[in-house]
């Protein structure tokens, strides 16, 4: 096989891989994660799989990179002070069991030779579902705003009743100020942990809303506890997949370096880019990621590769261009004010 000068040999996965592609995957995920506040790891597993990793390696390597990235994110967000430690300890139990369950499901499917297609279908369901929901959210925002304003005029917005499952034993979390069923707590963390182990994602996009809406945690504590949980989920995911011989450590490190550079840009961009329109771009990105997984499933690997990397890099380019424009606009306004 003729390998380019930028190709590196990854002995654990047993493939040659272009280091620029690895850096680009990490960079895109870093920009998206830093800008939108979600991990963006749902791009990594499909992208690695499209570019030649077997599915179990793609998930294991993604989880290893998530672990490293979660440490960087925890440091950057400085949110550890907002952790409900008691809830965090429950999260470790539930998440570790869930990740192990997810990893075993993948290995079971791997042993039958169907891990790739099954995980890809799960990704299609997740990405298209999320994308459709975000499109719906975007195109109905005016209607919702009008409804909200009408309710406010009538004497305050109606707060939907929080659903409660009071199945004993009940557990109290003084820092969050909530008392909930132990089964709800363990169920939330087990499910998100399983999702992490099965898809190689951080799971924050489900865990965060679940902590807020199902457990009733305040947002700041939900953010801190979610980060705390991702660190342990990632650590255990990295460990258990490595133990199952499914982590390509060199690839994980290269992606982590790319993600860290991208995350700095993403976080900085938040200061300069405002408006609801950016959500539409995010929805498009999610749908294109779903399309790339579909193309891979149909063995249209080259098209899938162009689709996933084109979408991720185009999204990064848009964010960077908007950031530079926002920065220049702010500079011009400051100069005008100084005159």
């Amino acid at each position: 096989m003729d390998n380019g000068i930028l190709d590196i040999y990854l002995p654990i996965a047993g493939i040659h891989f272009n280091i620029l592609i690895l850096l680009a995957i990490g960079f895109s995920v870093g920009v998206l994660g830093g800008f939108f506040g979600v991990g963006g790891a749902w791009v990594v597993t499909p992208a690695l799989n499209i570019f030649g990793f077997n599915m179990a390696y793609a998930i294991g390597t993604d989880l290893a990179h998530i672990f490293g990235k979660s440490i960087v994110a925890t440091r950057k967000h400085g949110k550890m002070g907002n952790v409900d430690v008691k809830l965090g300890l429950y999260s470790i139990v539930g998440s570790v069991l869930g990740v192990e369950g997810g990893a075993r499901t993948v290995m079971w499917l791997t042993a039958r030779g169907i891990a790739g297609p099954v995980v890809r279908y799960a990704y299609m369901f997740l990405l298209f579902g999320l994308g459709i929901y975000m499109f719906y959210d975007y195109f109905t925002k005016d209607k919702r705003r009008a409804r909200h304003e009408a309710l406010e005029m009538e004497g305050g917005p109606a707060v939907p009743a929080k659903k409660k499952w009071d199945l004993p034993p009940m557990v109290t979390f003084p820092v969050s100020g909530v008392t909930v069923s132990l089964w709800t707590v363990l169920g939330v963390f087990f499910f998100t942990g399983w999702l992490s182990g099965f898809l190689g994602v951080g799971g924050g996009f489900i865990r965060m809303p679940a902590l807020i809406y199902l457990l009733g945690c305040p947002t700041a504590i939900a953010v801190g506890t979610d980060l705390f949980s991702v660190v342990f989920t990632g650590a255990y995911g990295c460990f258990t997949y490595a133990l199952k011989a499914r982590v390509e450590i060199i690839a994980a490190i290269v992606m982590l370096v790319g993600a860290s550079i991208g995350a700095q840009l993403g976080v900085t961009a938040v200061k300069y880019i405002h408006g609801y329109g950016i959500r539409l771009l995010f929805a498009i990105m999610i749908v294109l990621a779903g399309c790339s997984v579909t193309l891979k499933q149909f063995n249209l690997t080259t098209a899938a590769a162009y689709c996933v990397m084109g979408a991720a890099l185009a999204m990064c380019l848009i964010i960077i261009v908007l950031m530079i424009r926002g920065f220049n606009k702010e500079k011009a306004l400051k100069a005008q004010a100084a005159r």
Binding site: N54, M55, G113, P117, V118, R120, Q297, N299
Partner: peptide, 11 residues
């Protein structure tokens, strides 16, 4: 599609 997309490599 599941049958069509089988990798057959991770055995």
């Amino acid at each position: 599609l599941v049958l069509a997309g089988g990798e057959g490599l991770d055995t």
